[in-house]
Every structure is written in structure tokens, then in C-alpha cells.
Design a protein around this nucleic acid. Structure first.
Lengths: 243, 243
DNA sequence: GACAAATAATTTGTCATACAAATCTAAAAT
DNA sequence: ATTTTAGATTTGTATGACAAATTATTTGTC
């Protein structure tokens, strides 16, 4: 027997309001900086109570589409990149296990050499300066402090992404690179880090990017990532059959 | 003169509650499927009104962390991948202009050949079947219908990403590939699509993936992306000086 | 005792009202 | 013209009420 599908009544009022305002913003009926009508006005427009409207507004606010200023009003936000990166970042962090670590490594081996190449081509003086500073900080740093090491690691790679001058690459790689501290905690916990080797490959990488030597940068990145991978494999006991 | 920085009072009650619950979920104090305490209980626990609490809950709900069922209760959600992809997708869509289109193309040229390679190595029978179906649908299809063409385009590339068997790649590329229809609308509006050429390179790509020929797949992808790029460049008038 | 139906209790969704706190506006004072 | 001050506006939170959906309990029947 044919049954009619239920008419959308599970959707709450507030979520309907949320969708409507979201669409208005996406269709650029309001642009960043614009002030939306006051809560009272919008309540009248939508014909709902303040409760329902406010719940919708809070949703939009955590989405990063609007910012609500007490006593002032409701404004369309400049879309903050945090809101783009955070959900992906959160997802990866929540699902991080041995299998995902290997997938991260696979992805980095595929993409980062190309990114390094592009960085070598497009880097400006500021990028080079940042990389140099990062590296010298790292070398001065105490060997023992694993947290600082992985933070440096993360920053160095992120700076290379920025140097490539393709904003999408930064957005894509930021959530991946943010995993580095967690991965190191899981992986290198017992191994006392191959810092000297790391420094060597970082120096080669920096040199190639400074010299705008794309091939060199790519190769240095490949070497570096292969170096770190060895440790990961050992620690994750994935080559037990191979030794 | 030294001034003290303002103590965090701009943060609203509801957003503080949101953070706290979010953290609980991220730290796996509650796992997907778990039922949270009722609103009334949580109000007492946090010592706040239902108003404030509900606003926090709505935020968590649009984040995809919880789902609220009327009459039943509040449950921790299985983290839906839509919530990961959507913000990035939205961001790119909102900021899509000529410059970003070129960045998208740059990124695809860098990454997709490698993805195709990996797909050739890891594809299973289902992937091959999907690609074949996609392609045959495309060939049967009416030349005029640009929307269907770009939808096919998007699906074909997404299926290749899936065939690579690295879930992060899908998450990264989905927002990019979703732009294809918009890009085509902008770019190919007047050009009546190089469908025959496209079909040719798609067939090569499919063959290489079917044969698990990584190098072939990579090369076919490079040819394909270079093919489409020519049109883009012409349409975006970026090679005026070069001709 | 087992099962079905009816009833009651619980829980979320929405509304209305009230007041506090921050901000903005405009009048008043200098 | 500038600053100060007082008032109006706007968002933040609390409370109480009732509707609507679900769940739990009781009741009735066999």
C-alpha cells in the first residue's frame, strides 16, 4: 500500500528560522558588517516568539555567520576561518587512532612535497624569515620538551603551506597538521625523538625554499616525511612481519 | 600606562555551557548514542535557566554533536560528515571568484593526479563499477544539459577519491569538487563544452584505474585537468598577453 | 501470568512577561 | 564645539505556562 511521506513537521521553528537567515546571508542579501534587524523586529517579521528566534540566532552565531553584541545588535560576520577549520579538526581529533595516523602519513607524503615545491616558487621574504625564526628557535630549544618540539613541527609545516600562497591549501592542511602533537604523543612517546635528523632535513627544506629550488624542496620534504614515518611504523608495530 | 585586560565577561552564559558540554563530548565522557541528562536536570547542574541551557543545546545541535528529540531526550550524535564538509564548502562557495577558481585549478592539478594513482592501487570492484556507470550515463546524456554534465563531472572525481581508500582525502576534496557546477556556470557559460575531449580523457582514466596502472591514471588525470584548464583560462581572460 | 489498550507522567517546543546589563542616542551643561 | 548626563534601545537571563511528542505506568481482558 502506498503511504505518503510525512510532511516536514519534525523540523522545529528555530531551525527553520536558522535556515532562512543562513540562506539570506549565503545569497549575500546581507554582507559582512551589515546589521540585521533587531530581535523584536525579526520576531514580528517571522511571527514567532523571542525564544524561538534567539535559539536560531545562537545557532547562526556558533556557525560563525553572525555575531551578536549585547546592547548593540546583530551583525553579519566576516566568515572566520576558524569556523572552517574547526569541524574538520575536531573530527580528525576525535577519530584519531593507529589506522588514521597511517592515513595522515599517506596523505602528507602525497601532498606536502608538492606544497613544498609551490612554496619554493611563491615564497616571499616574510615566509623565509618566519621559517628561519622557527628553525633557530627549535635548535636553541631543550631536547626534552616534546610539546614545544611538536608545536614547532606544526608551525614549520604550516608556514610552508602559507608560503605556497594558495589559501585553500592552508585550510586543507591546517586540520591535518594540528594533529601532529597528538600523533607524536601517541607515536614517539617512548622514542626520544630523532631531533638531529629532523633538524638536518628542516635545514635542507629551508635552504631549498629560500633558493626557490622547487625540486630540492620537494625532495627534502619527501626525505623528511620518510624519516618520521620510520619511527611511526616501528611504534605502531606495523612492520613486525617485515623485520 | 599599564592596563589590565578585561576579564572574560563578554562570554555569555549559553556559550559557556556550550563549551562545557562540547568538551565533555570531545573527551568522550559521553559517546554517540548516549542520552544526556534532561533539560531540567542540566539546568540544576549548571545552575541556569532553561532559556540559557536551551540556547546552548541548539548550538550543539547545529554543530552536529547532539540531536534533540522532542518528548524523548537529548542524545549524543554519531558525528556526521556533513558537518565536517559543509563549513568548508560554504566558505569556498561564498568566496568563489576568478582568483579562487584559479587556486582551485592549481590545487587540483597538484593533488588529483596523485589521488588517481592511489585510486588505481586501491580501487575495488565496486569503485570500478561506479566509475563505469557514471561514464556510460554521461555518454548517453544530452549534450545540452550543462547541469547534468557538471554533476557527472563532480561524481566521477569524487568516486576516484573514494577509490583511493583514504577517508581524509574524500573530506578534503569534497568541498573542492562541489564547486565544479558553480565554476562551470561561471567559466563555460558560453563555450559549448568540450564534451568529446572530456569523454576521451575520462575513458583513459577509467581504463588505467581498472588496470591498476597508477602511472597511467596519474597521467590521464594530468591531461584531463590541463584540458579543462585551457577553457578556464580563455574564459577568465588571463592569457590575453600570451596569445 | 501475558498481552493490549488506555491513562498518566515525563520531556522537549514555543510563547509571554519581566528585569538586568551593555550600548547607543540625544538632550543638557560647560 | 565638546563633554556629561540621562534616557531609550537592545541583547542576556530568569520564570512560569501550556502544547506536543514520547515514554512509563496502570488498567482491563483473556
Amino acid at each position: 500500500m502506498y503511504t505518503f511521506s510525512r510532511v516536514g513537521n519534525t523540523e522545529t521553528l528555530s531551525s527553520k528560522i536558522q535556515s532562512e537567515i543562513e540562506e539570506s546571508i549565503l545569497q549575500k542579501k546581507f554582507v559582512p558588517g551589515d546589521k540585521l534587524p533587531t530581535e523584536k523586529e525579526m520576531c514580528e517579521m517571522f511571527g514567532v516568539s523571542r525564544t524561538a528566534l534567539r535559539e536560531a540566532l545562537q545557532m547562526l552565531s556558533i556557525q560563525g555567520l553572525i555575531s551578536i553584541r549585547k546592547g548593540s545588535g546583530i551583525y553579519v560576520s566576516e566568515y572566520n576561518l576558524t569556523n572552517v577549520v574547526k569541524p574538520m579538526s575536531q573530527y580528525l581529533q576525535m577519530n584519531l587512532d593507529d589506522a588514521l595516523i597511517l592515513k595522515v602519513q599517506e596523505l602528507r607524503k602525497m601532498f606536502e612535497p608538492q606544497i613544498a615545491w609551490l612554496a619554493a616558487a611563491n615564497r616571499d621574504e616574510i615566509d623565509v624569515k618566519k621559517l628561519e625564526d622557527n628553525l633557530s628557535d627549535f635548535m636553541k630549544n631543550d631536547n626534552q620538551n616534546a610539546d614545544q618540539q611538536s608545536e614547532f613541527d606544526q608551525n614549520f609545516h604550516l608556514t610552508i603551506c602559507e608560503a605556497a600562497k594558495n589559501p585553500i591549501i592552508v585550510l586543507q592542511m591546517a586540520p591535518i597538521l594540528r594533529l601532529i602533537p597528538s600523533i607524536r604523543t601517541i607515536v614517539y612517546k617512548k622514542v626520544d625523538a630523532a631531533k638531529s635528523e629532523a633538524i638536518e632535513s628542516y635545514e635542507q627544506l629551508l635552504k631549498a625554499i629560500r633558493d626557490q629550488d622547487g625540486g630540492g624542496a620537494s625532495e627534502a620534504m619527501i626525505r623528511h616525511l620518510h624519516g618520521t614515518e620510520e619511527y611511526e611504523l616501528i611504534c605502531l608495530n606495523k612492520i613486525s612481519s617485515k623485520t
